[in-house]
Design a protein around this nucleic acid. Structure first.
Length: 321
DNA sequence: AAATCGGGGTC
DNA sequence: GACCCAGATTT
């Protein structure tokens, strides 16, 4: 555990400003979150942190895992009602394992990336089959579960099992990029240098590490936000934030452009899934009407949904699996 | 390393 | 209209 050799400490993101260091420098880098900052952020969280249901003491490890999967690329506000209904219907892994997949996909509703719902059910089945129905401990065992990657395995370890783990999500990346590196935004892709920074910023003591993970993530979600950070309310602003100390320099303009959603297969798949959730079964002719101009696109998306296990073929068209 | 995978709120 | 959101998986 944590046995991986530390990546080169001086590698920085492509678009990072890094103070020049000589190549033969021997001393370990000091750029990390100070003990005082850790205390300050944990204290801030105690007063300003949100009261989210999956943070309650009596919430099961499984319920925490479900929340983490739902929160992958999905804002808290949209997860809240879906998580509540989901946990009411399927409180344990065994409950979800036995549920009809069509109902699972309907309850997932419009959370997006519905393959997450399929993987969550597969995850439940694996937990029942291989772990006696209880969420396993340990990063390796968690990572082996469907739909559980590096982040979610660490989050479940920290927030469900209350063990020490290096949690790095988009919020934590941003807080560390600003407060330690002094840059407005982290690079688009997650680097080994960032993992190393998060690792050396994590308090050694178990209980404090859990509190830090929770608190710094919340700070990124509520204060150190991507668009217009509320530095006036930030406990780090006058307490060592490198970005504020630097005069809050703007992020370099990003010339790359993201794929527009309109007209993509993703949008079409979403429309087909919406129709299936509503009617259960939909004739092909009705699906083709979703884009009369581009029949190949509709057929391609129907094929991919079947291949993903999100839909099944009927004589007429598609139905929920 | 890059592409793909939803959907909606927000600026 | 572009960006963002407690990422994972595949190529």
């Amino acid at each position: 555990m944590n046995g991986a050799p530390a990546p080169p400490l001086l590698t920085a993101g492509r678009d990072r400003e890094v103070p020049p260091r000589s190549a033969q420098e021997q001393t370990p880098p000091t750029d990390q979150v100070s003990d005082l900052s850790v205390e300050t952020v944990i204290e801030w969280f105690a007063h300003r942190g949100r009261d989210l249901p999956w943070r309650h003491e009596d919430t099961s490890a499984w319920a925490v895992l479900v929340s983490e999967v739902m929160l992958q690329q999905t804002p808290v506000s949209r997860v809240l009602p879906r998580w509540t209904e989901w946990m009411r219907q399927w409180p344990t892994p065994a409950d979800l394992a036995d549920a009809p997949t069509s109902e699972v996909l309907r309850c997932w509703d419009r959370l997006g990336y519905p393959r997450r719902a399929l993987r969550l059910q597969e995850c439940a089945r694996t937990i029942v089959r291989e772990h006696g129905g209880t969420v396993p401990r340990g990063l390796d065992a968690l990572r082996a579960l469907p739909g559980i990657g590096e982040y979610t395995a660490a989050a479940v370890t920290a927030f469900a099992h209350h063990d020490r783990a290096v949690v790095v999500d988009t919020n934590i990346r941003r807080v560390l990029a600003r407060s330690v590196e002094g840059v407005a935004l982290p690079a688009r892709s997650y680097s080994a240098a960032e993992r190393a920074l998060a690792t050396r910023s994590l308090p050694a003591e178990r209980e404090r590490s859990v509190a830090w993970n929770q608190a710094v993530m919340e700070l990124g979600a509520l204060v150190c936000t991507a668009r217009s950070p509320r530095c006036a309310q930030c406990p780090l602003a006058e307490n060592g934030c490198a970005w504020v100390a630097d005069g809050s320099p703007a992020a370099p303009v990003d010339t790359r452009r993201r794929q527009t959603f309109e007209g993509t297969d993703r949008q079409m798949r979403g429309q087909i899934m919406a129709a299936l959730r509503r009617d259960g079964e939909v004739p092909t002719k009705d699906l083709l009407a979703l884009d009369p101009e581009d029949r190949p696109r509709v057929e391609r998306c129907m094929m991919s949904l079947v291949a993903d296990g999100l839909a099944a073929r009927t004589e007429e068209g598609l139905r929920l699996p």
